[in-house]
Amino acid sequence: MAKSDTWLFQIRITVSPEAAATLRGDPQRMPAALRDVLRRHDASLTCQFDAFSAYVNEAERLGPEKYPLYRWTKDTIENPDKKSRYLRSFTVYLDSEEVYPRKIADLLQVELSALADAAGIERVVKFDSNPANNPQPPESQ
């Protein structure tokens, strides 16, 4: 097996501001086609801004020194430009896992891309877990 076959993948979608408000506020009102794709794969969506906020809240409750990305994450959610971007960005979790095999990620990417206009999806991106392809945590906080 090639080294690239060992990486896991994640799908993220960027949605319109209106779709983001619906998905964050009342996910039961999400478009039926999107709900069907997610249900078929035992998948769910998590708003990246909400996930970042939860991380910061937990760090502040338990001690930021135990959370290496605390300062970066807090700065991110307090930056108005980044906040507006992350409010519209959703990570697809598969059976509560944030990374999954390529075959499943490829299928999700195709199925979600097909819903682009109808479900308010503006962009579907697949990321891999290879550290060389992803930003790494800051050296010091």
Rank of each mutant, 00 (worst) to 15 (best):
A54K: 13
Y55W: 07
I77Y: 03
Y55K: 06
Y100P: 02
A132S: 11
A119R: 04
Y93A: 09
R88P: 00
L94W: 05
V56T: 08
D117G: 15
R88D: 02
A105D: 05
A105M: 00
D75Y: 03
P101S: 00
L87Y: 09
R85N: 10
K103A: 15
P131N: 07
W72C: 09
D128W: 01
A118G: 10
L108Q: 03
L108T: 02
A105T: 03
P138C: 07
L108H: 03
K74N: 10
S140Y: 10
Y86S: 03
Q109F: 06
A118V: 12
D117Y: 09
T76Y: 05
Q136C: 06
P135W: 08
N79C: 10
P137K: 09
D106I: 01
Q136N: 12
S129D: 07
D117N: 13
D75E: 15
I104G: 02
R88N: 12
F90E: 00
E78M: 10
V110A: 04
S96A: 14
S84F: 05
Y55F: 07
R102F: 15
N130K: 05
S113L: 09
D128K: 05
A119H: 06
Y100N: 02
I104R: 12
N133R: 11
L94K: 05
W72I: 11
S96W: 08
D128S: 15
D106E: 14
N79T: 10
D81R: 14
R123M: 14
Y70S: 03
P101F: 01
A132C: 08
